[in-house]
Design a protein around this nucleic acid. Sequence first.
DNA 1: AATGAATGAGGTTTCATTCAT
DNA 2: GATGAATGAAACCTCATTCAT
Lengths: 184, 184, 184, 184
Amino acid sequence: MSQSDTKKRLINSAINLFSKNGYFNTKVSDIVKDAGVAQGTFYLYFKSKEEIFLYIVEEIIEKIKQQTEKSLKEDLPVDKKLKKFASSVFYLLSEYKEVAKIYFFHLLCTDEKFQKIYFEAEQMLKSFYLDVLKSYEDKALLTDILLGFGKRLLEIKFLRDQKPIEEIIKEFEEGLKLILRKEK
Amino acid sequence: MSQSDTKKRLINSAINLFSKNGYFNTKVSDIVKDAGVAQGTFYLYFKSKEEIFLYIVEEIIEKIKQQTEKSLKEDLPVDKKLKKFASSVFYLLSEYKEVAKIYFFHLLCTDEKFQKIYFEAEQMLKSFYLDVLKSYEDKALLTDILLGFGKRLLEIKFLRDQKPIEEIIKEFEEGLKLILRKEK
Amino acid sequence: MSQSDTKKRLINSAINLFSKNGYFNTKVSDIVKDAGVAQGTFYLYFKSKEEIFLYIVEEIIEKIKQQTEKSLKEDLPVDKKLKKFASSVFYLLSEYKEVAKIYFFHLLCTDEKFQKIYFEAEQMLKSFYLDVLKSYEDKALLTDILLGFGKRLLEIKFLRDQKPIEEIIKEFEEGLKLILRKEK
Amino acid sequence: MSQSDTKKRLINSAINLFSKNGYFNTKVSDIVKDAGVAQGTFYLYFKSKEEIFLYIVEEIIEKIKQQTEKSLKEDLPVDKKLKKFASSVFYLLSEYKEVAKIYFFHLLCTDEKFQKIYFEAEQMLKSFYLDVLKSYEDKALLTDILLGFGKRLLEIKFLRDQKPIEEIIKEFEEGLKLILRKEK
DNA sequence: AATGAATGAGGTTTCATTCAT
DNA sequence: GATGAATGAAACCTCATTCAT
């Protein structure tokens, strides 16, 4: 078994367990048992439980960040741009569903260090919306509405109710239409 | 039914500490130290750490429930009804800011048992919105948008950014107007 | 069982075990087993293994320090003063034989923190000898000879060979006579 | 019988680390890292951490033993013999300063097994002094004084205070003169 | 009602040693 | 000879809970 194989196995086990039981209810001993390695092996790859947690969360935040930056550069009409961005982020999170669960459900509950990461990500998305909606008078309000709506869809419909991501995306698009509709 | 002073002191200390540090990072020994009583005294009033946590959270949920039921019975036009309900809930949470923090930030991160409470509360609010908006074609969509928006305002603007609750309420009302505006 | 009773039992067990097996070969679990208390009880009284070790060592050093200060103030001829001081220190160490063993045999082998204590004590004794012997031309040389000789007696004759302290004292007095003898 | 390069590197690293940090605070992983070889390589040359420690300490004790035996055979007046022997041992230890440090500072603090070596070496030196001083009435006393004095010079002046070995030797010679001076 | 010393199961982490390559 | 990933026993320490006073 190659080195990175073991590391990957530990990460996968950690993602599943953190996602299912949360950070505090997941013991390093659970992770290694799930990964099928000895207790000491964990510490060859990660200095501590905290480290593997941050490693996992930062990985997906990095991916969202990249997506955001890419989307910002695209030249599209506002509604198209938002639709495309949202669906790409939704797809991304559906691929990393378990990590997303950690992010939404389990991240906040701990130290400042964890909270910092959480708010960094939210800051990133906010900047994106504000930029895309810059021609709207109510851009700040619209941003809060859209961010709250998107987060709710992920939290409740996707992660809790297990609806397929396509449905989530469709619902977001409809919401988008409703929220951004121009009055005559 | 008045509680003994000691019990009240324990509850207050627990609220503050759970709110600041979360369930897992709060020790029973922290709570009793903060309350100025002996370790054993805690167990005269609560069977376990879990029990006091649930006690605290359920207390506020009960309050929101009562408010919801009261609001449902009132006979007002939709927008007025929503405005009045939202502001009453916002005021309620601002009075119990620390408990609200536990609810939003620290409740999810734990066992299924705790999550159940979280989702029960959300179910209650959802029913309220669906009922109030029953004349709207898009009532389900509008409910998700409004719940997401409201939660975001509380989480980010009120609890994190410490904005005064009046401002939060005003922003919610503006959002409400924007979201519910009738097209010609 | 009163609080200080348990603490005393832990200290006694620790003294015996550190003395017999050294700092590193003594586990906290050994100490609590010997003291007949639970593992967690240890941490009610000492923050760590290091803390109880330092506590023990510092206690005896403090005693020697007090003895030294008392001796310095006494008005006696040099040889009488040295004899009296040495025998009082020897008696002191024979009362705390196990602690003395830790001091001589086990203290040096660790971190700087431990070594600092060791050298502080030696500094104290050195000052004493230099002061008492201030009328001697060779006072520095004599101090080194006497300190080396005294330490050897304790280390080899008393602690290793288990000779009674009275014999040690007698031998030190003879050495003293020989070393300080005036040439005609 | 030449040792492989790798073995020599392991020994050197071990000497430095044992000397600096002591037996227990030195990990096998530290030794191999310092030596620039893989973890497993260590066990090609030494059965255990204990083995390399004993190997190192026994090596220098063997050297002192040979020096002692050689000195015993020399036909010189007592004071010359002692002076010559002491300076040869002092030089020897200054060459192997790090090992000497292990011997004086770190050997005692451990198991009986290690202490045995310590006392064997001291026995050897004692025999030497007793033999050389056999014409003196107080030979036993003188031996204890000289051994204590010599050890102190090495421990405090040489190893701790880093004085040059020549100065140490000079001070020992002066002490020798003072201690062995004949009364009229 | 109140105390607080005591408990002990269970957590995280370390590190000497092994072994397949 | 050399590697270094893997092992797992055993260390230190935490903390919710109990119970005699």
